[in-house]
Amino acid sequence: MFFRFCAALSLVVLIAAAGIAVEKQLLDMKRTQTLQVYRLEQLEEKYARLKLRTQELGAPSRLMESLEQAEAERAARRRATVVPLNNRR
């Protein structure tokens, strides 16, 4: 009788312990999933900010003036290096 009682009790305890283990695993997976969703959001946000920064740095309005200025300086240098005919030896 005692042996049967202990066996039944052990069975119940084992089933409860297995249930707790499964529940813990489920919670752990949920936590991992939430973390992955959070990381994905962070990466999307980082991607958006990096894309924004690259587009700001490469914006034509930012580059065009400096390109035109460099071109004007090059043209001025070219003009300066051309020695007038009457100065040539």
């Binding site: 946000e45 958006a48 900010r49 894309k51 924004l52 587009q55 490469g58 914006a59 034509p60």
Partner: peptide, 9 residues
Amino acid sequence: GRLLATTVA
């Protein structure tokens, strides 16, 4: 393909 408007959090 140049970005004209985007969104940040």
